[in-house]
């Protein structure tokens, strides 16, 4: 009886804190940097248009349908439907004189995706398409 009570109370506490606390972390400085670094990679190329085209090709390989794109701004927005919905924006911009940086962020149904594995998988697919290595940024 007592054990059940303890389990119940801890569950309740978990329910209330689980999502809220992670959401709060986004606006905390340290974690924002962490989020940005897991969502960003640099590639050794200055051909921005080619990078954006490969982003589109990679998203199509991952069964996304492209919603919109802008060559000048280097942005691509796409949606994947597979019983669930994932919406993703990728932005490409020059980084220094020799590199191009690619930043991605995605939303699963109503929640932003903060799982680093998801972004690793995306960049791993993108680097295969580009024949270039994705460098982590610090």
């Amino acid at each position: 009886m007592n054990i059940l009570k303890i389990i119940f109370v801890s569950m309740l506490a978990l329910t209330m804190t689980a999502c809220v606390s992670t959401r709060h972390k986004i606006i905390e400085g340290g974690n924002q940097v962490k989020l940005r670094s897991m969502q960003t990679r640099a590639f050794d190329t200055t051909d921005k248009n080619n990078v954006v085209r490969n982003v589109i090709a990679t998203l199509q390989d991952l069964n996304f349908v492209i919603d919109k794109a802008d060559a000048d701004l280097g942005t691509v927005t796409a949606t994947k439907l597979s019983g669930y919905q994932i919406k993703m924006t990728v932005s490409v911009r020059p980084k220094g004189k020799t590199q191009t940086s690619v930043r991605a962020n995605a939303q699963y149904n109503l929640e932003p995706i903060q799982d680093p594995v998801v972004y690793q998988q995306f960049f791993s697919a993108l680097q295969k398409s580009l024949f270039l290595t994705a460098h982590s940024i610090e």
Binding site: L14, T15, A18, C19, T22, Y84, Y108, E111, Q121
Partner: peptide, 17 residues
């Protein structure tokens, strides 16, 4: 409450990306 904990945070399907 166990169900709530399990369903509270949605996780992305492993194969999505």
């Amino acid at each position: 409450s166990l169900l709530l904990v399990v369903s509270g945070c949605q996780t992305v399907p492993k194969d999505a990306f």
